[in-house]
Amino acid sequence: MSSNVVTVPARLDAGAVAANVRRSDVPVNPVFDGNTTLGFWVYLMTDCLLFAGLFAAYAVLGREAAGGPTGKELFELPYVLKETGCLLASSFTYGLATLAMQTDRRTGVLGWLTVTLILGLTFLGMEFGEFSHLVSIGAGPDHSAFLSSFFTLVGTHGTHVAFGSIWMLVVIAQVAKFGLNRTMRTRLLCLGLFWHFLDIVWIGVFSFVYLMGTL
């Protein structure tokens, strides 16, 4: 770590003078912007709270099927296992992209990001297929409290994956154009935090919604 730390040239500004701190005392990480990644992590923590609220709503409403179909009748576990496999594999391939970034292999980063994006889109396609199937058999979100909370929770996760995929597309284009500079490494790390985080939320979804719903 110490080899990565350099100091910025002394630059006096009002805040620094007021705090009686010389700017040159503050180590700056030349590899990426640590303030941004920490700030993004704090955003992810607030996103956790959003999902906690939706999980709590589902925990209360998940058995209120209003005489309609229950999770036991609707959920197809082998299908959910394939979705889980896509998302888990994509988390792993994003890790490989991060490793490629650490050793400055630009084509490696682009390749693994593309694989990750394809796996993410496959997951989204499968989830869209499941949702449209449910709506077509009359088990849409308007049918019961169970289905309302189910579509809200799983749909919110899917929306996150969709925005993560758009972001990944943008980052792929930017890495191709600008290379692996400090800004791009920071963005790659933030997107990585986001992508791994979505997989952690999915663990909660498949465990507490699908698996417990079929018991």
Binding site: F32, G34, T37, W41, G95, T98, L193, H196
Partner: peptide, 10 residues
């Protein structure tokens, strides 16, 4: 010392 984010350094 907030340089090292989670997800880096694996």
């Amino acid at each position: 010392t907030r340089g090292q984010p989670a997800s880096y350094g694996g």
